[in-house]
Each structure stands twice: as structure tokens, then as C-alpha cells.
Write a protein that binds this DNA or RNA. Structure first.
Lengths: 194, 194
DNA sequence: TTCGTTAACGAACAATTTGTTCGGTAACGA
DNA sequence: TCGTTACCGAACAAATTGTTCGTTAACGAA
């Protein structure tokens, strides 16, 4: 019995298709990209595409999930979590910078929306739990924790988007510093007084 | 010479089409809605649709622009601007609540993305100018004003989105209060020290 | 190296969807 | 009342989607 998933041909094809989508994303909007465009760019047969993915959306989702998995690993990695911040945002910014083409394609197009749909639950849960831990016992937060979590996750995505759209005029360190400066006062204020 | 734009039939048709799109947006994703769906729901001929709009995107954009115009008027209306906030967010939340179906359709689907594309320039410029006025002379802000503006606009959209997606569990007043509590500390902190 | 497995090809296919055209009908407004 | 014009609806080419299937060749285990 041969291993289906590790077949060189399969992996090669999937890589070609993904790269093709990423490349096309730099040129035009996600909605304007057809399956034909993708398979032409990837130099792959039509039936081959549909053997790997249900449709264009499926391809995009799979790429996004792969991305989020990487981010999740970064977030859960214990060494990354400092005392000053809730998320290892500097590492996140650095990682994004390294793979900017990938992220530029993802965050644009349908990426942002899918990011919200698929990812927000995860981030919200994690952030809500972390915030709960930070909250002194018996304290009622000034702003409900789910709202605060949404705010933080949203702020990160907003900054990320701005950074990518504006050709990354600041370093990851600077971006992280700014983000912390914007978020943490609110967090402190909200957790302090009921 | 008869007035083309104020013809009862035209306005009626446009209203039908817009309402059809909004109704369909409650049921399925923007991408899954076809022009056929729209004209069926609006009970309008195919050629009629294309007489009014170039394509589906054009229809969406026109609705969004109409929306933003309303918001812009609210923002520029002098009575709305209080001393405590940069945007009349409470009025904005109230307005959204009144027209929730419209906004729910818009903010979902492609709305959010278009909102960013079309609207961010406007909000950013306005917010940047307002922030500049608040900044003491000669002061260098801790965070560049365009970044701060982006952050504020993004936070508003984020909260709005959360509010709509979660069936609006809080009143506009409460939402406004929370948003101010989240944003203003950062603004104060950033404008104070260089 | 051999050999069975299987991924890729590519052409052909029906089904949708898109955007346009045009002649006839009826609603509009001056 | 009457000229204008928005709407209809059918028909159209073009593009796109997702599937099928016989053939070829790359793969990997023995």
C-alpha cells in the first residue's frame, strides 16, 4: 500500500497550485481569479485541480488554515509569551514580514473575511481565557471580556492590514511597540475598575 | 425634456433591486448570489438590471456609497460632535440599530472589504486632521497619526461587526461607552508623550 | 530492476452564468 | 393628449464551472 498523501507528484501539484493562487493574488482580486487562471499559471490539468480541491474557495481555505496553524503554534509556544503582552505580536509581525507574499495574498482578497470567520472563534476563546486569568478574583470587568477579546484581535488584524497595504514602512519591532501602546492602556483600564 | 433620474419607474426599479439584494444577503453569501437571483427576487427583467447597474459589484458599491454618505453627514453634522469623542459613535450605533437589516447585509458579504477600500481614505483623512488639532503644538505623537487613525476606524468597524453578528446584545449607549473606554486611553496616551 | 498502483493529463461534456441586443408594450410627465 | 422612455422578454455568444474517462507516465515498495 503506497502512501497517497506523501506522493511526490501530489505534493508538487499542490504546491504549484498554491503558488499560482498566491501569485495571482498579487495581480488581481480574488473574485476575479478563475480556476482556469489558476491551472494555467500552475500548468496543471483541469481534472487535476478538482482532484485536490473541491473548488476555488476550498483551495483558499486550505491555505488559510495552514497559515492559522502556524500562527497558533507561535501563540501557544510558551517561550513566546512575555509578561507585557497578551499575544507574541512582535514574533507575529516578524513572521508576517518573512512570508509577506503569502500574507499579502491572504489578507487581501477573501482572506480577511475568512480570517474573521474561521479564526475569530479561536482567538476570542484564547484571549478571553487569558484575560480571565489576568482579572483579579471577584472583579467585574468594565467591558465584557468577549468584547475586549474581539477588540484586541480586531486591532491586531487592522494593524496588520495597514502594514501590508502600506508597504510595511515600520519594522516589526516598531509595529509591535505601537500596537502594545494602543491596546494595553485599554486592557489595564478595563480590568482595573468594575 | 423629462427628468431621467426622477422617473417614478426608475426609482421604483432601483428600490426593488436594492431591496432584493439586501434580502438575499440575509440568506446567503454575497458571492453565492447571482444576478439571476436578484432579478428574480426583484421581479425585474434582465435587461432592466443592466440598464441601471454595470454588474453585481456596481450595485453593491452604489448601496455602500449611499450608506457612507449618510454616515458622513452624521459625522460632519456639528451638533453631533461632543468633546469627549472623536466620532459621534453613539449616534452611529443608534443609526445602525435603526437600519440593522441594511447594515447587516452590508457589513457581511463583500461589504466589509468594500467598506475598507472605499471608506478608509475618508475616515483616515478626517480622523488624522482631528487628531492633529488635538495634538499640542510641537509635540511628536508616540504613534504616527495615520496609524492611530487606522486603529480608531478599525476599532469602530470591529465593534460594529461584533455587535451585528451577535444579535446586538447591548444598547447603542452601552456600545458607545465601551468603545470610548477602549479607544480613548490609547488616544490620550499617544498624544501626550512624544 | 521490476511491477502494481495511482496521479496527472487533456479532451469532451452539460449546465450555469454573464452581459448584450432589439422590437414591442405600457407607464410616465409635460 | 402625446411624445418620451423605462420596462419586458426572448434570444444570443461567450465564459466559466465541475465532471467523466481513456491514456500516459511517474512513483515507491519489493
Amino acid at each position: 500500500m503506497t502512501n497517497l498523501k506523501t506522493d511526490r507528484r501530489s505534493q508538487r501539484t499542490q504546491r504549484f497550485i498554491h503558488e499560482a493562487l498566491m501569485a495571482l493574488m498579487q495581480e488581481k482580486r480574488y473574485d476575479d481569479i478563475t480556476v482556469q487562471d489558476i491551472i494555467d499559471r500552475a500548468d496543471v490539468g483541469r481534472s487535476t485541480f478538482y482532484a485536490h480541491y473541491q473548488d476555488k474557495e476550498d483551495l483558499m481555505t486550505s491555505g488559510l488554515l495552514r497559515l492559522m496553524q502556524i500562527l497558533s503554534e507561535m501563540v501557544t509556544k510558551p517561550s513566546a509569551m512575555g509578561e507585557t503582552s497578551l499575544l507574541p505580536t512582535q514574533e507575529l509581525f516578524e513572521h508576517v514580514q518573512e512570508h509577506q507574499n503569502l500574507f499579502r495574498g491572504m489578507v487581501r482578497g477573501r482572506g480577511l473575511e475568512l480570517f474573521f470567520e474561521k479564526g475569530q472563534e479561536y482567538w476570542n476563546q484564547k484571549l478571553t481565557a487569558d484575560l480571565q486569568a489576568l482579572l483579579p478574583k471577584g472583579q467585574v470587568p468594565a467591558v465584557p471580556l468577549p468584547v475586549l477579546a474581539q477588540f484586541i484581535a480586531g486591532a491586531f488584524v487592522t494593524m496588520l492590514r495597514w502594514w501590508l497595504d502600506n508597504k510595511m514602512p515600520y519594522s516589526p519591532q516598531e509595529m509591535d511597540e505601537m500596537l502594545q501602546r494602543l491596546i494595553m492602556p485599554a486592557v489595564r483600564e478595563c480590568l482595573r475598575e468594575g
